[in-house]
Design a binder for these strands. Structure first.
Length: 564
RNA sequence: UGGCCCAUGGUGUAACGGUAGCACAGCAGAUUUUGGUUCUGUUUGUCAGGGUUCGAAUCCUUGUGGGCCAACCA
C-alpha cells in the first residue's frame, strides 16, 4: 500500500450542511458504519425542480459518504397513482445522472405491513374504528382541546384481530371502518391522537392489482419501509416534522431497525409554483401544453427547455440545505445554465426578426464561405464556414434610424462589423409606402475581412447576420417566466398571475444552413441572442428551437434606463 | 390564543464563544470581432429587548415575525 501523499481535499474544508454534520457525527461515533438514504416520491405526478433538490441531496449524500440510495415509490394510495408517473420518475432520476441502488415500492411491503399491524393489534396498540370520518374528526378535539375516545377504542385485541382480517378480506365497503393506532388522544401533537393506519379502498393498485382492499396510510408505511430498507437517514421536507414522533413510535413499538427522520426546507423558486396540485391544474386546464411544457418547473419541462442535468445539479449544490423557509431567485438557476452552456454550446447564427441588408458594392453573384469559431470558450470546438453574399439579413433591432446615445449598432452613416466578415457602413435605407424600412443599404470595406483586416478601421459594434440566399426557415419558441409575480402561491388566485406573454412563437425565424442537421436535445448558443435547444417537435424540414435562456443583456438594461 | 420548526445584505448560504465570509442579483471599471465570456472593484446584513461572558450572529430569557400540524392525501 503506497503511502498517501493525498493533497488536502477542498471537500474536507468545505462547510457542511446540517445533515452532513449529523452523518459525519454518526459515522464518527460508530452509530452507523455506512449510510443508506432513499428518494421516496409518490407516483402521482411528474417530478419538479424541488424534487431535484431532494434527489441531489439523497443520492449526493450516498455518493459522498460511500453509502447507497434507493428509489422507493410511495405507492400507498392507488386512486391517485399511475404507471405513467412511475416511468417518468425513474427516467427523470436517471436523466439527472443518478442510478438508484435499488428501485423499490412501498407496495412491496404490504404483506409485512399487515403482519406488523397484527402485532400492534395483538399488543392492544391498534384498533378497528367504525366511527364515521365526521365522528372521528369531532372526537379528535383540537390543538387546545383533548380528544375523546370513540366507543371502539377498547375493543379487545382478539376481536380487533378478527375485524382487521375481515377488513382485509373485503367484508366491509369503502370507508366502513379504519384501523387506528392507540396512542394518546390528549397529545398536543395531533398526529399522535390515534392516527389512521389502514383505510378501506376497493381500488385496483397499479402494481398489486386487486390483491388488497386495505391500504396503509403514509405514516403507517413510510417509516416501516425505511426500516425494512435499513435507511439510516430518512430525509424529508419540513412539513413532516410533526410526524416524527409518530415515525419513531411505530418503530419503537415494533422494535425494528431504527431509521431516523431529518427535515430540511423544500425549494421554492421565484416566478413559479411548485405544488403538484397547482402544476396539475396548469396541465389539466390547458394553461400549458403538458407536464413537459418548457415553462414548467418540472424536470421534464426544464429538460425540454434546454436545461442540462449538470446545470440542475450545480443549482442544487448552490442553493444549499437548511431548515429556513426560502424562495430562491430564478436568476440563480439561469446563471447555472448559462455557466454550463457557455462552456459547451456551439455558437450558431440565427436571425429572429429579419431585416434585409444590401451591400451595394458587393458583386451580385459572389458567395464567400467565411470561417467562424464554434465556441470561443473552447478551442477544441473548431471552426465552421458560413456563406456571405450581397444580400443579408440582420436582426431588426440591430439597426436604428435615430439611434439613442451609446447605441453602437448600425445606423445611417454608422459602421459596424459583421461578425467574422466585413465592416460595413450604412449609406441609406429603403422604405415602403408606409414609411417602414424594407432594407438597409451599406457599402462594405473589402480590406476589412476578418482575419485579414488591413483597413485600420475600429468599430464598436459587431452584429450577426445571415446570407439571404442561404438562410433556412425555422420555428423559434421564445419562453419567458410563467408568472408575473415573484410568489404566485401567495396570490388569491395564482392563475390570475400567469404571464400572458410567457410564450412567443416565431414561425419564420432564419437560421444558418448548419442548423438543419440538428437533433432534439441539441444545445446551441445563437450568437448574441441566447441559448437554444432543439425541440422534440423539430423535423429536418422544419427545425424547431426553444429558447432556454437569453444571454445577459446589459444593453437592454441601458436602453431601459434611457427610457426612464 | 396547543405543539413543533425557523429568523444573518435584495435572494440564498457560511461563520460551531474570538476580524460577519461566499455565491447569485445590483452598481462601477478593464478586456473583448457576441453590449456574451473573463477580470477588477464595490453598495447592502446578524428581528428586538434583557442576561451570561474579557468577548455573543452563536449560549440563556422574554418578546416580535414567519412556517407547519386537527385529509380514510403524501
Amino acid at each position: 500500500m503506497a503511502s498517501s501523499t493525498e493533497p488536502t481535499r477542498d471537500e474536507s474544508k468545505a462547510p457542511l450542511n446540517f445533515i452532513e454534520e449529523i452523518i459525519e457525527e454518526d459515522l464518527r461515533s460508530g452509530r452507523h458504519s455506512s449510510i443508506q438514504t432513499r428518494f421516496p416520491p409518490e407516483p402521482n405526478g411528474y417530478l419538479h425542480i424541488g424534487h431535484a433538490k431532494s434527489i441531489c441531496l439523497n443520492f449526493g449524500l450516498a455518493q459522498k459518504y460511500g453509502g447507497k440510495c434507493n428509489l422507493r415509490y410511495d405507492d400507498t394510495n392507488p386512486t391517485s397513482e399511475e404507471q405513467e408517473y412511475v416511468d417518468s420518475i425513474l427516467a427523470d432520476v436517471r436523466w439527472l445522472g443518478f442510478e438508484p441502488d435499488q428501485v423499490l415500492y412501498a407496495s412491496d411491503y404490504f404483506d409485512q405491513l399487515y403482519e406488523w399491524a397484527r402485532v400492534l393489534v395483538s399488543k392492544g396498540l391498534a384498533y378497528v374504528d367504525f366511527s364515521t370520518p365526521e365522528e372521528i374528526a369531532a372526537q379528535k378535539g383540537s390543538p387546545t382541546v383533548p380528544g375523546t375516545p370513540t366507543p371502539y377504542r377498547n375493543t379487545p385485541p382478539e376481536e380487533n384481530l378478527a375485524l382487521l382480517e375481515r377488513m382485509k378480506n373485503g367484508e366491509f365497503p369503502d370507508g366502513h371502518c379504519v384501523l387506528r393506532a392507540k396512542i394518546d388522544l390528549a397529545s398536543p401533537n395531533m398526529h399522535l391522537r390515534d392516527p389512521y393506519m389502514y383505510r378501506i379502498k376497493h381500488a385496483r393498485h397499479h402494481r398489486t392489482g386487486d390483491k388488497w382492499c386495505i391500504y396503509p396510510m403514509y405514516d403507517w408505511a413510510h417509516g416501516q419501509s425505511d426500516s425494512i430498507e435499513r435507511v439510516t437517514h430518512s430525509i424529508c421536507t419540513l412539513e413532516f416534522a410533526p410526524h416524527r414522533p409518530l415515525y419513531d413510535w411505530f418503530i419503537e413499538q415494533l422494535g425494528i431497525f431504527p431509521s431516523k427522520q431529518y427535515e430540511f426546507a423544500r425549494l421554492n423558486l421565484t416566478y413559479t409554483v411548485m405544488s403538484k396540485r397547482k402544476l396539475l391544474q396548469l396541465v389539466q386546464q390547458g394553461y400549458v401544453s403538458g407536464w413537459d411544457d418548457p415553462r414548467m418547473p418540472t424536470i421534464s419541462g426544464l429538460r425540454r427547455r434546454g436545461y442540462t442535468p449538470e446545470s440542475i445539479r450545480e443549482f442544487a449544490q448552490r442553493v444549499g440545505v437548511a431548515k429556513r423557509e426560502n424562495i430562491i431567485d430564478v436568476s440563480l438557476l439561469e446563471f447555472c445554465i448559462r455557466e454550463d452552456l457557455n462552456r459547451r454550446a456551439p455558437r450558431r447564427f440565427a436571425v429572429l426578426h429579419p431585416l434585409r441588408l444590401v451591400i451595394t458594392n458587393y458583386p451580385e453573384d459572389q458567395v464567400e464561405w467565411l470561417e467562424t469559431e464554434n465556441n470561443p470558450e473552447d478551442p477544441q470546438a473548431g471552426y465552421r464556414t458560413v456563406p456571405f453574399s450581397r444580400e443579408l439579413y440582420i436582426e431588426r433591432e440591430d439597426f436604428l434610424e435615430n439611434p439613442p446615445p451609446k447605441y453602437f449598432r448600425l445606423y445611417p452613416g454608422g459602421m459596424v462589423r459583421l461578425k467574422s466578415a466585413y465592416i460595413v457602413e450604412c449609406t441609406g435605407v429603403q422604405k415602403d409606402d408606409y414609411g417602414q424600412i424594407t432594407a438597409v443599404l451599406c457599402r462594405y470595406i473589402p480590406e476589412s475581412r476578418s482575419g485579414a483586416d488591413t483597413s485600420g478601421l475600429k468599430v464598436r459594434g459587431t452584429i450577426h447576420w445571415l446570407s439571404a440566399a442561404h438562410a433556412q426557415t425555422a420555428e423559434v419558441r421564445l419562453y419567458d417566466r410563467l408568472f408575473q409575480v415573484e410568489d404566485p402561491s401567495s396570490e388569491e388566485d395564482f392563475k390570475k398571475a400567469l404571464n400572458p406573454n410567457s410564450l412567443q412563437i416565431l414561425p419564420n425565424a432564419l437560421v444558418e444552413p448548419a442548423l438543419l442537421e440538428t437533433q432534439p436535445g441539441d444545445h446551441f448558443q445563437f450568437t448574441r441572442l441566447g441559448y437554444f435547444c432543439t425541440d422534440p417537435d423539430s423535423t429536418p424540414a422544419k427545425p424547431v428551437f426553444n429558447r432556454t435562456v437569453t444571454l445577459k443583456d446589459t444593453w437592454a438594461k441601458e436602453a431601459q434606463k434611457q427610457r426612464n
